[in-house]
């Protein structure tokens, strides 16, 4: 019941999806769409579960007065406030919920994302310091591509954009294709092992 039934469910669903792929019939298409819709519903329930553990973890910090517990008040406060506003006002455009989203979450997301500009510079410096053939190739390709995408590259040498394009469409494409084929085989193998119950980590592993 605890292990065999989940393994059986997994097997049945896995085989059903494989069979479904080869059946273009409407019933088969409907089955596929229904299953994907149900996944979204289960995911929504799991958000309740996740949000519950988030509250639990931060509540524990507050009650134990762990280091930095004051910040946990901000997290729980922000979460509860957002939930309350979302359920009371709804989430349509113009509601307080969307205003908070626009003026709090969006700038925070955008600023975290923009930190990449700094990190990409430090990563480039790291690659520059690593004196191996591999790191050198990486760096050369990176520099050529970067120059190829800006007017300065063209002014430096008019052939740079063309070389950058050639790197993108040939060696780059070739290497990516090698990776994609390998990844595909790895994925299929993992999927097969899951369907057959060889890999069962999603139920905690075990025999």
């Amino acid at each position: 019941m605890r292990r065999q039934l989940p393994l059986a469910i997994c097997f049945v669903m896995g085989v059903s999806m494989v069979v479904q792929f080869f059946i273009p019939h409407r019933v088969s298409q409907e089955f596929y769409r229904t299953i994907l819709d149900w996944y979204r519903i289960v995911f929504a329930f799991s958000l309740v579960l996740g949000t519950g553990t988030l509250i639990k973890v931060h509540w524990a910090k507050i009650s134990k007065k762990s280091k930095g517990w004051q910040y946990s008040i901000i997290t729980i406060g922000g979460l509860v406030f957002m939930l309350a506003v979302g359920f009371i006002t709804g989430i349509q455009e113009g509601t307080l919920f969307m205003k908070i989203f626009e003026y709090v979450e969006v700038p925070l997301e955008a600023t975290m994302f923009s930190l990449l500009a700094f990190y990409i510079a430090s990563a480039a410096y790291r690659a520059f310091r690593a004196r191996t053939v591999e790191a050198t190739l990486l760096l050369i390709a990176a520099v050529v591509l970067m120059l190829g995408r800006i007017p300065f590259g063209y002014y430096l040498w008019h052939k740079i954009p063309g070389i950058a394009e050639w790197i993108l469409t040939n060696p780059n494409m070739a290497a990516k294709r090698g990776i994609v084929i390998g990844v595909g085989l790895g994925m299929i193998s993992t999927a097969l092992k899951i369907i057959l119950g060889i890999e069962r980590s999603y139920i905690g592993g075990g025999k």
């Binding site: 790291r126 990486l138 790895g186």
Partner: peptide, 26 residues
Amino acid sequence: DAIHQLPFFITACDYTLIGEELYAAS
């Protein structure tokens, strides 16, 4: 197996499993 993120892991991490190596790891 996210090809576009591999360069960043390669430059900032000590070891990087590339693509299929992730699936071979287990």
